[in-house]
Amino acid sequence: MRLIVEHRTRYRFSEPQIRLIQCLRMTPDDTDDQTVVGWSIDVDCDARLRQSRDGLGNRQAMLYADGPIGAIEISVRGEVLTGDHGGHVRGTAEPLPPEFYLRETDRTVAGEALGAFVGGAVSGLLGADTIDAATRAIHGRFERIPYVEELRDAATTFAGTTATGREMAQMLVAGLRTAEIPARYVGGYRQREGRACAPHGWVEAYADGEGWIAVDPSTGGRVDERYIRVAVGLDTAGVTPVAGSRLGQGEEMLDVALIVEQARRQ
């Protein structure tokens, strides 16, 4: 599938900022399932961008801009060719072994209830079946609600009955780890017909002998060619598209506009 992404992130500040430093995790990498045909990040003010990779292998760009800055818009445009390998993730940069992704973080403390729930769902299963079963279980347990900016941690979300897609993914990550299955949060894009889009989050979990498998608790199934993988992290915090620091007073307002669509046949 040929997917086109247009992702605009606009920050407006109630008072001009003296300086902005932001870390952008907005650049996908080639894998066996996706080939980045073209990708650009444009900023509407005088800014310097420095590309690098973080410790987990994600592409990142540091953005440095001097003030006064009343507003800044980061425009990402890109085109990616995707394939479908049944959710098997191959060809990714892996600086750390799967075991690292058993680590608990503040946001992925599962708590007893979530641990028991996932433990029950995977009981008696082996390998990738455990991952699929846990994904279906989380999918079935929650009513999905639309994207909200504020995000609850895994245990808090589990205590309720509704969850956003990102919260479901974070819960699944936490739950899989309690079952000693390495799991990580993936941030990226997902194409959906006729729907307004928001940055999406799903999960990669590791099955011995099979490798990393990408699943999406929002759908209850495996990830396919409608997904573009951008960054992985231990939790949602690790894949934040724009993580920044600003020097200046006042409030900030954030607008995000995102279009992910299939390219028309040429």
């Binding site: 990779r53 973080d54 410790g55 987990l56 600086p95 750390l96 690292f100 231990l234």
Partner: peptide, 8 residues
């Protein structure tokens, strides 16, 4: 163990 410094 800080993954943030892996690769440095």
């Amino acid at each position: 163990f800080r993954h943030e410094v892996v690769g440095i």
